[in-house]
Design a binder for these strands. Structure first.
Lengths: 214, 214
DNA sequence: TCTTTTACATACCAAACGTACGGTATATAC
DNA sequence: GTATATACCGTACGTTTGGTATGTAAAAGA
């Protein structure tokens, strides 16, 4: 049975979601600098008071958005694990090449409104100390949790470090592509770079597979 | 002989340089969002009128800063070419490993106030259309010029593409490290990732060397 | 000498910013 | 019924923003 309280809480939850969605949209379209409370409100039918009720400050709105984005990616892995991640996908099955998997990851996760909004926040976190204090621990936790998806039990310390570093190289590269995009007017060229990267990384991912005993 | 005109022009040039330096400092410390005209002026003994004289709008100030940063890196290559670039360094001489060269590049070029300021502007360019129209052509030119340092004459089309893509992978990776830094409280860990990347890339850089006939 | 240009200074502006706060409606708890 | 909590509304505040208008001093060119 759905009580009146549940309905009310549901309404509040919907408002929160709408505000976060609008925030993501603003971050993607306007960037962090131009994402103001007014702009967020323009994109959604919510009053100024309602926003301040759910998110007492702009910083709280950003934190709420980060929480949503981090859990979104974790959910992505949990749902499809272990076949969701490009590396896992190519090492656990023969459906498609590593290059295809990496390009798909770029298109479905990184080069999306959510992925770009996430990058905007990470970039802002670098210089906003108050934001950094609240977000950095979340990022370190999240990073750790992600790594767990690709670390089968029983690995020795050296192998764990090897896998972890390889994953970080992949993440650093793919995030750097957001910058690199600005240097190329042709979007197909981005795909070309990713495919070349996949070719170079392939042997090292096979190494990961061997070590994990899969 | 130094005329009074020269002195005056020199004075103006000094003011421009000071403003750009302060802008870089603000971008590095505060990020693009918090880099305002007032903040830039706080860091330097120049009046508001003087700033508006040299840079009629905030956008002009950013463009001026970009011009400075781009030419700074080009100068770096021109001075030390062909031994300045990590790849060239390791392929043209035996002084140090590729890993050392890449770490040095990270520390001396990317992870500096100028490098971080540059990243802030690139990131802002993604969403600021007016800025993008003025900066993107500069970036494409600059990218092209940089590539020329590592493309010896006489390479066939396929080899050129191969070298170009390898360089772009390196650049994308190292720029992505600026994001990645936010995920790790230990700065030494960044160096570890770069060294692992160097290990993976080494054979492909030797390939470049062979193809270029060096 | 007179005019123009360059370099800089001061004062001010409208617009936008994030935040605070008083108020309404509705639900639950006692 | 009364108290309390939640969800939401709308206005007003003080500050900061990028930008402009107007002025001065000095050097250059006519």
């Amino acid at each position: 049975m759905v009580s009146k309280l549940d309905k009310k809480k549901q309404r509040g939850e919907n408002t929160r979601k709408a505000l976060i969605k609008s925030t993501i949209d603003c971050l993607d379209r306007l960037g962090y600098a131009e994402t103001s409370i007014n702009r967020v409100l323009e994109g959604v039918d919510v009053s100024r008071g309602a926003l301040m009720h759910h998110f007492p400050s702009k910083e709280d709105l950003v934190i709420g958005t980060v929480d949503f984005l981090l859990s979104r990616i974790l959910r992505h892995y949990q749902q499809e694990s272990p076949n969701s991640f490009p590396f896992a996908q190519v090492t656990h099955s023969d459906n498609g090449t590593l290059a295809d998997a990496l390009v798909t990851y770029w298109k479905n996760i990184i080069d999306t409104p959510e992925g770009r909004a996430f990058s905007e926040i990470i970039m802002a976190t670098r210089t906003d100390k108050a934001l950094s204090l609240r977000i950095s621990p979340k990022l370190e936790d999240w990073n750790e949790q992600l790594n767990q998806f690709f670390l089968p039990p029983g690995l020795d310390e050296e192998a764990i470090e090897d896998v972890t570093l390889t994953l970080l190289i992949w993440r650093s590269f793919i995030r750097g592509m957001i910058f690199q995009q600005e240097f190329h007017s042709d979007p197909d060229y981005i795909e070309k770079i990713i495919r070349k990267f996949a070719m170079i990384m392939e042997p090292h991912l096979r190494l990961v597979q061997t070590q994990s005993g899969a």
